[in-house]
Design a protein around this nucleic acid. Structure first.
Length: 567
RNA sequence: CGGGGUGUGGCGCAGCCUGGUAGCGCACCUGCUUUGGGAGCAGGGGGCCGGAGGUUCAAAUCCUCUCACCCCGACCA
């Protein structure tokens, strides 16, 4: 590809609206442009990047027996009504056709797959199946952000497995996990595999593939000792034990003006770990629920929602007064007439809690003795807590979710009538799994993990072009001819190559080459006339330079380690 | 949905408080010079100042409403 004729609009200045590193660089390098919030156009280099990633995904999906299909973006509402997901998913785009029929823009394809399976799968002899597609998804996200990291329309590789039973599902699931590991390794990413919350997908189990980087929206809890890895939404951790309590007898103490844990513990001169934080929530059904965590810790709302089996929201201050008779700063569990859930690490100990009396707290309180409660895991794990498996300290990292895998079970098959006959002639529901990868998130994670101050540094496996040729001066016919020769030779050798044949000053071309981040740069400049050589450099190691004669350029490029493994 | 912020040539911004001919840098076009890390000089084109309404002799500027976008939080298959 020749830069002089192509749409590669690089920017000198930082785009004002971009915050995340990958977002800034994708805009500056001319990979994407934003059409609306969370809606992007992929320009030639950006689209090529996605296709490079998709090639790897296809190879690995095909290798485990995946069959590529293409399902529609536009769905009839019926199948979503049958699965029970027509209501209650605010991200779903809904529309009507000209006859007034309800339609859906597909955000995922379990329903369509189950519909298809219901028609085409008859017998256990037809199983197992792996169907996948690389296709556009539409989700009306509450808050698109961070460039292409969270968008309302995006490309997704989604695959679905159909199996006769759970044991077979486990095999399909394991095959996907292995394929996903290979895909992300080949894309040059550092990543973790973590247990995750199946959420509204429902089902028997789920894992996420998470790439650590600064722009990450999620957090993962990691144990270096035993390899424990889990999304903070479900991660367990053992907080450090509190110091010995003062042994104070139970009783109220005046704490005027002290409303936060920090204020209360400072006023009383005690460690915050000897206090209990009381948080009132309201369930979807309108029931108030008091959630308790240790004073130094935070509540993870997803854990609370999971324990209750329904969504919750924080109560308003007037609801706190109404149910507990005290303002938020003085509420507590003792004598409260609402359901109480306490973090499991509050089983032991004697604590200070709000007294449900404005300006007072109660000393010497022990959960389950001084008030009734149910113990569940509620607190958000923080770095330094002990691993539940091996006791070593846990770390917490920011991550981008680049893939996820779900064991769905028979929920969708049952709802949409996807049944098969087993060996004994008994009709059974097909057992499904679903598996997603976001190619654009792989791209963003690769940028986040590899960029330097000058721009992108692509892993060769997904680089839009492995080779980038810079002609220093277009006025020098010998340089132009030599560059054309290397360009043609690379193409003959099967190397995708970008030729900067723009009539620009050298500095502009070098800056853009750094920004675009192709793994190998060939500079055709003054060294050609002076020494009869071109210069070959790796983007990741700019100080190492190979000066070789023209006819050795391609063989030198091919010998570079950086291109090993790249197609 | 709650909180914060921003809308002025393609990009990045100033001007607004204190109303009075719309500016700067980059990019773009022409010419000359220049050519190994974002060139110099000269000339030039391009903006109903996000939109609507209002106040005023006069609105980018003041007021009201509205739309869009960004960030934090909530949410997230």
């Amino acid at each position: 590809m020749r830069l002089a004729k192509c749409l590669v609009p690089t920017l000198r200045e930082e785009p004002a609206d971009a915050e995340a590193l990958s977002h800034r660089l994708m805009l500056r390098a001319g990979l994407v442009r934003q059409l609306a919030a969370g809606v992007y156009v992929y320009l030639p280099i950006g689209y090529r990047l996605l296709e490079r990633i998709n090639v790897i995904i296809r190879q690995e999906m095909n290798a485990i027996g995946g069959q590529e299909i293409l399902m529609p973006v536009l769905h009839p509402a019926e199948i979503w009504k049958q699965s029970g997901r027509w209501e209650g998913i605010p991200e779903m785009f809904k529309l009507r056709d000209r006859w007034g029929r309800d339609m859906v823009l597909g955000m995922t394809h379990e329903e369509v797959v189950a519909w298809l399976a219901a028609r085409e799968i008859r017998s256990y002899r037809d199983l197992p199946q792996i169907w996948y597609q690389i296709q556009t998804k539409e989700r009306d996200e509450a808050r698109p952000r961070s460039g292409i990291l969270r968008t309302r329309e995006f490309l997704m590789k989604d695959s679905y497995t159909l199996d006769p039973d759970v044991a077979a599902l486990d095999r399909s699931y394991a095959a996907h996990e292995a394929a996903y590991r290979r895909i992300f390794e080949r894309c040059g990413l550092r990543f973790h595999v973590a247990q995750s919350d199946p959420g509204m997908m429902g089902g028997l189990g789920a894992h996420e593939f998470l790439a650590p980087c600064a722009a990450g929206e999620d957090e993962i809890v990691l144990c270096a000792g035993c390899g424990y890895a889990a999304n903070v939404e479900i991660a367990r951790g053992v907080p450090a034990a509190p110091p010995s309590p003062s042994g104070a007898a139970r009783g109220d103490v005046a704490t005027p003006g002290a409303r936060t844990i920090a204020e209360v513990s400072a006023l009383l001169g005690i460690d915050p770990r000897l206090t209990i934080k009381s948080l009132l929530y309201v369930t979807g059904g309108g029931e108030p629920v008091l959630a308790l965590v240790r004073g130094d810790q935070g509540l993870h709302e997803r854990k609370l929602a999971r324990a209750l089996g329904e969504d919750v929201r924080p109560a308003h201050p007037d609801e706190v007064r109404q149910h507990l008779g005290a303002p938020p700063g003085s509420m507590g569990p003792v004598g409260a007439s609402v359901r109480i859930l306490a973090d499991e690490h509050l089983r032991e100990g004697v604590y200070v809690v709000g007294a449900n009396r404005e300006g007072y707290h109660t000393l010497g309180v022990t959960p389950d003795r001084d008030f009734p409660c149910r113990f569940v895991d509620l607190h958000a794990v923080v770095a330094g807590e002990a691993c539940v498996q091996c006791g070593r300290p846990l770390a917490v990292e920011k991550v981008i979710e680049i893939g996820n895998i779900f064991k769905l079970g028979t929920k969708y098959a049952t709802a949409l009538g996807a049944m098969y006959l087993d060996e004994s002639g008994t009709e059974r529901p097909i057992v499904m799994g679903s598996y997603g990868i976001g190619p654009a998130r792989i791209a963003a994670a690769a940028i986040e993990q590899n960029a330097d101050a000058d721009g992108i540094v692509w892993p060769a496996s997904i680089a839009p072009f492995p080779v980038h040729i810079v002609v220093v001066s277009l006025r020098d016919a010998a340089q132009v001819a030599a560059a054309e020769e290397v360009y043609a030779a690379c193409q003959r050798a099967g190397l995708d190559v970008l030729l900067d044949d723009r009539d620009e000053r050298p500095g502009v071309k070098f800056k853009d080459a750094d920004l675009l981040g192709m793994p190998v740069r060939v500079t055709v400049g003054n060294a050609l006339a002076r020494d009869g050589v071109v210069e070959i450099k790796e983007r990741r190691a700019p100080r190492k330079e190979h000066r070789v004669p023209l006819d050795a350029a391609v063989s030198t490029i091919r010998s570079l380690d950086v291109l090993a493994g790249a197609s």
